[in-house]
Write a protein that binds this DNA or RNA. Structure first.
Length: 268
DNA sequence: TCTATTTGACCGTT
DNA sequence: AACGGTCAAATAGA
């Protein structure tokens, strides 16, 4: 077991280092932007691949650890992010949602709608979101995201296969503000009986449900500065005109990476 | 026929 | 008991 753990750790570190190096190379080539678009897309594909592989490895170790832990210790970090957006409320956020409820809320002028990930049953994805018109301005929606997606959606896969060629939905809403984000620890009473599996055609990972997770784990100065950019974007009430959910997709990927790494830090 | 939405009922928490 | 979140049967629509 020790040997397996050592091998896993080296693999993870190697994948993450490669992803970091590629990201810096891309950054170097973009500024100034004299590099061809094809070269950038190639690098992005390699970066996504490295992070996918690292996540898959970490998730496997996480599940192994969960299997060894008593139920009373099966805790997971749970993230919540609140966005304010204009438009129809049906903003284009990459993921597919299925409405499962609507409630009138005490003291609120408009009901709150409840959505869960379409892939809850097929992939065990536990991400949910709530949407409600604000009392102050009914044209502005408060969107609360809970948990992170463990599923891989078709659009997400297309994004990774064809970076920079995404098309935006006609009715995409504009995100006005990231109101706040918080993290809490919740106890999961259900056993994790999902296992990770690999796409037969690619190395892309389909991860088990792992509702999670943001933390402050730091890996070196370089990554810290990289993370700081994102943290500043999401933790302060910030005007984010031009911010799109394509950006959020990347943001979520990054948050996933961090939290998984904290798990593996505990593991070791 | 299949999938998504609607909506009243139900349940856990406070 | 009130409230918020979820369930599930009924309904809509492609």
């Amino acid at each position: 077991m020790e040997n397996a753990g050592t091998w896993d750790r080296k693999s993870v570190i190697s994948e993450l280092n490669q992803g970091r190096d590629l990201a810096y190379e891309l950054k170097r080539q973009i500024y100034p932007s004299t590099t061809s678009r094809e070269a950038c897309e190639f690098l992005l594909g390699k970066i996504f691949s490295s992070y996918d592989n690292a996540l898959a490895l970490l998730n496997c170790m996480d599940i192994l650890e969960m299997g060894r832990s008593p139920i009373s210790e099966r805790k997971a970090r749970w993230s919540e992010q609140v966005l304010l957006c204009s438009g129809t409320g049906q903003i284009d956020d990459v993921y597919n949602w299925r409405k499962y409820g609507q409630k009138d809320i005490l003291g609120a002028n408009h009901p709150r709608s409840y959505y869960r990930c379409t892939h809850r049953n097929t992939q065990g994805c536990l991400a949910t979101k709530q949407v409600k018109r604000t009392d102050e301005d009914p044209s502005i929606f408060e969107v609360v995201y809970r948990g992170n997606h463990s599923c891989v959606q078709e659009r997400q896969k297309r994004n990774k296969e064809n970076v920079n060629t995404q098309t935006k939905a006609e009715n995409e809403g504009q995100i006005l503000e990231v109101a706040h984000e918080k993290v809490e620890t919740r106890l999961f009473s259900e056993p994790r009986d999902f296992i990770p599996f690999m796409s037969p055609s690619t190395s892309e990972s389909y991860l088990s449900p792992s509702p999670c997770q943001v933390n402050d784990f730091v890996i070196g100065n370089d990554l810290q500065s990289f993370k700081t950019d994102f943290t500043e974007t999401i933790s302060n009430p910030t005007s984010v005109a031009n911010f799109s959910f394509e950006d959020l997709d990347i943001l979520i990927d990054h948050v996933d990476f961090d939290s998984y790494f904290l798990d593996v830090a505990d593991y070791f």
